[in-house]
């Protein structure tokens, strides 16, 4: 099977400090990543904070380009599942839903056609037409998730989103995500919950210090990661 997206020895560095008076120094967020993403799979990415997970998602989604190596995208449209994108607290839930949907790359007409669905899914009732500043944190999260889940693109990059709203909505959100995962969608999932990764992913990549050090079946990679972590802690 031909991969949808391939990364070959990809590296990214950010400027850490430096100005006219101080020498520039760089921080290598990703050193050398080689990776293929196949159609229909759910790929999990695990690793400590600062391992380069979010940078990797930005690379795959095409927000940034690598400094070294190359990325081959064989015609896949990729988007980060972004919650509460561009939310303005002074606008109503309806307006924010329109804006958020458009910011994620869709026409206003398409988003407006989906508004009733978003309204219903978010369970916001009359609050949907009230300014978002009057919402609780959970209500905001519900609106954000509803927009993203209903209008999100075919290839999803998911960064720790499965923890939105109250317990009941969280279950509903997770269920919706799982339904998406079950369809023929290609998903790249970042989560600190190893349980979630083990349940949802077909394949897992372990990132450490900007390099993919391990790749394989979820349970195997997670076991090795957990063991090496606990050994390091001792």
């Amino acid at each position: 099977m031909e991969p949808l997206i391939s990364l070959h020895n990809v590296g990214v560095h950010y400027k850490r400090s430096g100005n006219v008076f101080r020498r520039r120094s760089f921080f290598e967020a990703l050193k050398s990543i080689t990776l293929d993403i196949f159609p229909g799979e759910t790929l999990g990415i695990i690793g400590k904070n600062g391992a380069g997970k979010s940078t990797l998602l930005r690379l795959i989604s095409g927000v940034i380009k690598p400094d070294t190596g190359k990325i081959i995208n064989r015609g896949a449209s990729v988007s980060l599942l972004a919650l509460q994108v561009g939310f303005d607290p002074n606008l109503s839930g309806r307006d924010n839903a329109i804006l958020s949907g458009m910011l994620q790359g869709h026409s206003r007409f398409d988003v407006e056609e989906k508004l009733d669905e978003i309204h219903e899914y978010s369970e916001l009732g009359d609050f949907f037409n009230e300014p978002v500043r009057t919402y609780s944190t959970g209500m905001r999260a519900r609106l954000g998730f509803s927009v993203s889940i209903i209008i999100s693109p075919d290839i999803l990059l998911v960064d720790e989103v499965l923890s939105v709203g109250d317990l009941q909505f969280r279950q509903k959100a997770e269920r919706s995500m799982v339904r998406r995962f079950q369809s023929k969608q290609t998903v790249v999932l970042i989560s600190h919950s190893h349980h979630q990764i083990a349940r949802l992913c077909d394949r897992v990549i372990l990132l450490e210090n900007g390099t993919n050090v391990l790749e394989g079946l979820p349970r195997n990679v997670i076991d090795i990661y957990t063991k090496s972590h606990s050994a390091a802690a001792r």
Partner: peptide, 13 residues
């Protein structure tokens, strides 16, 4: 969740 007749609808890309 396996029901493919009504998959979660995404907008056309």
């Amino acid at each position: 969740i396996l029901n493919t007749e009504h998959p979660p609808q995404s907008l056309p890309s």
